[in-house]
Simulated scan of single mutants.
Amino acid sequence: MKPYYTLADLLDEEHPFDAGETVPARLVVIGFPIAHSKSPAMQQAALDAAGIRARYIRIQAAPEEFGEVVRLLRKRGFTGANVTVPHKQAACSLCSDTDALSRATGSVNTLVFQQDGSVSGFNTDGPGFARAIREEFSVDLRDLKVALLGSCGGAGLALAYTCAMQRCERLTLAGRSEEKLQELKNRLSSFFIDEHRLEGASDRLAAHQNNTPRFNAAVEEADLIVNATSLGLKPTDPSPVPPALLSAHHLVYDLQTHDDAFQMEARFQGARVSNGLSMLVHQGALSFERWFGIKPDISAMRQALEQKHD
């Protein structure tokens, strides 16, 4: 099986990509680039454990190719798709119905191709994150003061809305753009108004640019610090949080699925730390539930990911 397929493969009637395969491809992850995706390993493990005869493949598609790729997948009888950077917003626009988080963020990472030809869209990043926090730290988001780094982009936006929708104790949005932070804060403020509490939205929701005195204070006071920035992708990347702000009372969750400077420095300070593999598993499991209406074997998915990770 090829590392990934392309629009040209979908269009090639003479050499169908199922040629020579005993099991048909019925699920896919679409991105640009896509060769690095870990989703095939864990989703294939879930399919095999459930006895579903289907392959999960990668398709690399440039932004201008995305709509045509989805159309051809539907035509070829695919069950659904996962969608990653940079197609999540485009995926949302193709859906005839979406869940609340997708509508709030304008972003979809799971497509379900319905028998009537319509496409349903879901964002499983947020609920996958909530499940991961519960699993890793034995606490729910609603009971935590959260500092979310990289709030306005990519998965960070879904995490921001998830924290707000679950009415976390306090949420500090952090990022580089003051304008985007204030816009997001305004959109989330209604979730933090509670007539039964003395505090108002301004007491429980804040937005600060990175590395300012208010940002530093909010990080120090937080229970949970989440890194949803791109820092950590490269081995030479610095931590998004100055080590002096980290302490043993912190819970640290990093969306990077490998060790990086942030995680290592947090551990050195005595914090409880988790990387993003648990979120990857849980958002993938939620996608599987949307496609088939059954819960996948989480342990099989996690084992496949850990083997791939090693």
Rank of each mutant, 00 (worst) to 15 (best):
V23F: 06
E179P: 01
I52Q: 01
R214W: 07
L141A: 05
Y56A: 02
A35F: 11
M279L: 15
P240T: 12
A285V: 13
Q307T: 13
K180L: 02
H36S: 01
A217K: 07
L188I: 12
G154L: 08
A8I: 15
G121K: 10
S102Q: 03
D203H: 09
G200H: 11
D97Q: 05
A41S: 14
C95R: 03
S299F: 13
G51E: 04
A132D: 02
V70P: 02
I59E: 03
R74T: 12
A62S: 09
E178Y: 12
D194M: 14
G175H: 02
A8P: 01
T162P: 05
G126C: 10
D260T: 15
G67W: 13
R74F: 04
Y4M: 06
F215C: 05
A49D: 06
A207V: 07
S177H: 15
A81Q: 01
H249T: 09
P213F: 15
N186T: 11
E14S: 12
P296A: 14
A61M: 03
S278Q: 05
T229N: 04
G154P: 08
L11P: 00
R131E: 08
M264E: 10
E265V: 05
F32C: 08
A35T: 11
L198P: 00
N123T: 03
H282V: 07
N109T: 12
G232M: 07
H282I: 07
F262G: 01
E195C: 09
P3V: 14
R134A: 13
Q182T: 02
L148G: 00
L149W: 14
G154A: 09
A300C: 12
F32S: 01
N275S: 14
A174W: 01
A158Q: 06
S287F: 09
L231W: 04
R58G: 07
L286C: 07
R71T: 06
R53N: 07
L224E: 03
Q303M: 05
L255Y: 14
T22V: 05
S190M: 08
E68D: 00
F17W: 13
I225A: 04
A49K: 07
A271G: 13
M42I: 09
G117L: 13
A50Q: 12
F78M: 01
G156Y: 15
S230A: 12
F288W: 09
G153D: 06
I225C: 08
D259K: 11
L149M: 15
A50L: 14
G51Q: 02
F268M: 03
H250I: 13
A62L: 13
F66H: 01
H36R: 02
A244M: 10
R53Q: 15
D99R: 06
G126P: 11
F129P: 00
S37G: 06
Q43D: 14
D99Q: 02
F17H: 06
E195H: 15
C95P: 02
L280R: 01
T84P: 04
S278P: 00
L305D: 00
A222F: 04
L277D: 00
D310F: 12
P127S: 09
F17R: 04
R74N: 00
A300H: 01
A81E: 08
D260N: 09
G51T: 10
H258L: 12
T98S: 03
A158H: 05
A271K: 05
V23C: 04
S202V: 15
A50S: 13
D48Y: 11
R187H: 08
G284Q: 06
I34N: 02
R142W: 11
F32R: 00
P238V: 14
A304T: 06
D259Y: 11
H87V: 10
L280M: 05
P33Y: 12
